[in-house]
């Protein structure tokens, strides 16, 4: 125990992808979601919303893990993430 180097496992196939939903007009531009996004896929967008704030935008389409931490942080209930199962991924594993 402990002497043998562990064999690296092949990376698991992703079973879901993340999707993020942004309600631009509710955003007040506090930046919590951008700062605390674990994979850092959100950026401040150039556009203005109805109230003159810059809402966040998804910079990296495939990077979102759907952890919904943005949804937990957002004080204005303007953003949330979900996990969408990838077709066939579960069947492949079984």
């Amino acid at each position: 125990m402990g002497t043998n180097a562990t064999v690296a496992k092949p990376p698991k196939a992703a079973k879901f992808r993340g999707e993020v939903f942004i309600n631009n007009d509710r955003c007040k531009g506090c930046g919590f979601c951008i700062e605390f996004c674990p994979p850092k896929v959100l950026v401040t967008s150039e556009k203005y919303n109805r109230h003159g704030y810059h809402p966040p935008a998804l910079a990296n389409e495939t990077g979102c893990t759907g952890c919904d931490l943005c949804g937990l942080y957002c004080p204005d209930f303007a953003i949330y993430g979900i996990r969408v199962p990838i077709e066939g991924a579960v069947a492949q594993r079984a």
Partner: peptide, 18 residues
């Protein structure tokens, strides 16, 4: 009743999510 009256950067909305 949205948007609420809390200021940008206020933490109250965050606690409501929780």
């Amino acid at each position: 009743r949205m948007p609420h009256l809390w200021c940008p950067g206020c933490g109250i909305g965050t606690t409501v999510n929780c």
